[in-house]
Design a protein around this nucleic acid. Sequence first.
RNA 1: GGGCGGUUAGCUCAGCUGGGAGAGCAUCUGCCUUACACGCAGAGGGUCGCAGGUUCGAGCCCUGCACCGCCCACCA
Length: 807
Amino acid sequence: MTRELQTRYDPHGVEERWQRTWEAEGLYNADPDPTRTPYVDAHPPPNVTGELHTGHALQLAIGDTVVRMKRMQGFNALFQPGYDHAGISTQNVVEIVLVSEGTSRQEIGREAFEARVWDWLHEYGGKILFQFRRMGASLDYRRTRFTMDDAYIRAVMRFFVHLYRRGWIYRANRIINWCPHHETSLSDLELEHHDVDDTISTIRYPLADGDGYIAIATVRPATIPADVAVAVHPDDERYQHLIGREVIVPWVERRVPVIADDRVEREFGTGALKVTPGHDPTDFAIGRDHGLPEPSCIGADGRVTAPGLEGLTQKEAEERILAWAKERGQLEDREHYRHSVAVCERCKTRIEPRISLQWWCAMDEIKQPALQALRERRIVFHPESQHRFAIDSLEHAPDWNISRQIWWGHQIPVWTCPGGHLTVEEDEPSACAECGSAQLTRETDVLDTWFSSALWPFATLGWPDETSDLAYFYPGDLQTTAREIIRLWENRMIFCGLELLGEIPFSDVVIHTTVLARDGRRMSKSLKTGIDPLELIDKHGTDATRYGLMKNSLTQDVRFSDAALEEGRKLSNKLWNASRLIITVCEGAAPAERPSSLEERWILARLSQAQRAAERLIGEYDFAHLTDELYHLTFDDFCDWYLEAVKERLYGGDMAARATATAALERLLKLLHPVMPHVTEEIWSHLPDRTTRLIVASWPQVGDESEAGALSLVQEYAQVFRRSGVVPRLDGDEQRIFDAVVKPARAPQREPGNAEAERDRLRNEIARAERSLANERFVANAPADVVAGEREKLDRYRRELDAIGNT
RNA sequence: GGGCGGUUAGCUCAGCUGGGAGAGCAUCUGCCUUACACGCAGAGGGUCGCAGGUUCGAGCCCUGCACCGCCCACCA
């Protein structure tokens, strides 16, 4: 039944076939089963608007690798898929489509707009799942959730009402970041900062009670009509005499006080600041502390509303005001000024700080249990530096602005009656809870998209219902995510899980690296530096892509390189061919007798050792060293050393050797499967008498070919080395023994041409070791084993030098 | 302006609590040896960013500097 196997492994076709097979056979599925221990990774739901990018691919590879090992180890592994409605970004994308059709959101109205978004969603939501599948991600696709499906809406409403009844939700006027394009508030986290070329104007504000003026530098003269004060630093000697007096604001000719506040920078501009609480965050803070009014002169659309300037753009208003000032000799100076301004990260429109009535969630109380969980390390972020960052950012988390003035999202469940009473209910109430009025209007704002994502680990399991899924799979275990999302999402999932269910949602958070473009820049759509993972899969295959992306450490951002993926492809090809040899030669071999030859005992010991290393590395989320270990295990130890050593015996009909080779291959495949699931499953299917798929095969037990055994084998190995000249890769103690026992045996074989260089090296080493040992402080202070090691080295170098002839 | 990370071979990166500078790719040499030429055997290649310091000993610890990247930030 041996089939003809190609000499070159081609992942195309093979990988998709296994993806379909695994899913069709239900091997990705996880259901509550009291006899097994659950392991849960609720995979971050990507934005429906997005295509999968390289970061997602890495994220899937990491999560899937861990999940696959856990599954083989007997855990009931749930890998939860889904996607996110992503409020503003989705609305933005659909709006762009509407504009291209010559219409707009406003024109078609809210209901029709929402319908359009749903259409769009049905088209693109599936694309994400397709991309998940092509990465070989063993997600339970039956459980795919969307953050705005009916059940999810219920969870979000429950959450809002819960917070409201706890007294943590409030409505308040605050200065917020306003996007005039989307006409919505944005959190600080939804901004980008860009440097722009601007103009700074110095304008004189005349004193109200006589001659003189205060000159003020501003980049935004258009906001002058909303000035309510002029502020100077309390210790600024230039202005001491003016504090408490009044100046006249240009254009509106209103008298405002001169106040002192230490937030004013004396060195900036003229050292005097016009205070405009309605349009600047600093000014807002100063105004609140001084009890100043908060007028506005710019509307929601970014146009000016001040008297005499109604409907003008800010640029136009600025020109009018400056002309007005110039006429009166109050315009002192205008000069070029480059500075950083906040823009909307979605549409790049310049942010308008604006006072607005918003919904907020108070953070003080809700975050405490989460902080405790992090400090007690019941939840651990990896790497460690991100753990500190998570704690720090949660400690300093300001109140959460949860309302957005857009159409796409979860509408806030608050109803208002004509009497102004608020009714807060999960479902639409029939009458005002306070006065009974049936004339209720619902709040039009929607919730911040992260308000719903925060529920992901348990809303996906059926919360707020007490489902068997929830009881069995919650709390979960793993989260894998990008750095920039820690404050937006990870921290919020943690405090929500603790608040609503009383338990942490997961125990480990892996913050993976940012994969940079080939040129070191950030991957971004707008820069066209992004790399589509589907292209990588087409070019290198899924297994190679997973391997290549995971070959990065967690601590350092890394440039994307095709070489790493190419290495993965070579590894799968090597494995394929090694397997081909064993499968074609060893068919029908008798069950393994106890292996007797050194090579066989050696490889089994190496496999045990590598397995322990792999388990440890996955446990530490150190995927860079995991891939390294697997690569060298396969290439150096399994193929170049073991197979080369036993090949002749396999051909020669040694049945015991054949059985051992098959057994060793099985174990190798199991170790590689989490990282490279497809090629290993493909090979597995060609092994004789397969009754189960590799994906659900049991993880090997480390038996009596353990490390101690392996180490003792090294002694024997030295003889093999002398016989065959094959050099295996060794670690730790083995390496030391190898150096002590094997290398000296090798020295005489060196080329005569190199002998002189070798003598020099050895003489240097001997001199160095002698110096160390002659150093009393070294002998007294260095650790005993270091000193002993130095003596050993000295002996060894002397022996080696004698061996090649000390001329 | 703060915080974090980085700087090691031509390239992409490892280097664990200080004790003989590594991998893969690329280059060079020899091999189409019947699993694999996407292979095998070998070789060359590094002032570990710069300057100080601690130590018997520093890629690793301390100080300062330079450059790169990310995050945060109210200099109008």
